[in-house]
Amino acid sequence: MFRVKLLLMCAMGLSTGILAKKIQGIAETSKMIDHDYFEIHVTSIDEYKEYLKQPISLVLVGPQVAFKYEEIKKTLEKKGIPTLLIDEKDYGMMDASTILKKALIEIRNYENKIK
C-alpha cells in the first residue's frame, strides 16, 4: 500500500491541472493506494516552494520546464524530496496511469535508497 502525496509542477500549472484530475481519478480506483492519505497538488515553477511546507512524497516536473529540472532536483534533494521528470510522450498522451505508475516506482526506489 502506497501512502503518497504528489506535487505536479509545470510552467503555469494549467495543463498539469488537467493531468492531476486524471491521476486523481485513477488513484481513487487503485487498490495500491491509501485513499485517505492520497493528495495531489498542482503548482507552477515560480510558486512550488510554497508547497514544501507540507509533506510531499514526490514532485513530478512537466516537460515544459525540463530545462530547470536539475536546479529543482538539487533544491528538493536537500529537503529529502525525490523528483521525477514526466516523459514527453506520456505527457503528450495525457497517459495518467503510466505517469502514476512511474511515480510510485520512483517513490519506492527512493525509499529503498534512503533505508
Binding site: Q64, A66, F67, E88, Y91, M93
Partner: peptide, 25 residues
Amino acid sequence: MMTSLEAIAFKIISSAGSGKSKAFM
C-alpha cells in the same frame, strides 16, 4: 475519455514545452 481536441492541445503543449526546454539547455 479524452476528446480529440484535448489530445491535440496536449500534444502541442508537450512537444512545444520540450522544445523550449531543449532550446534553453
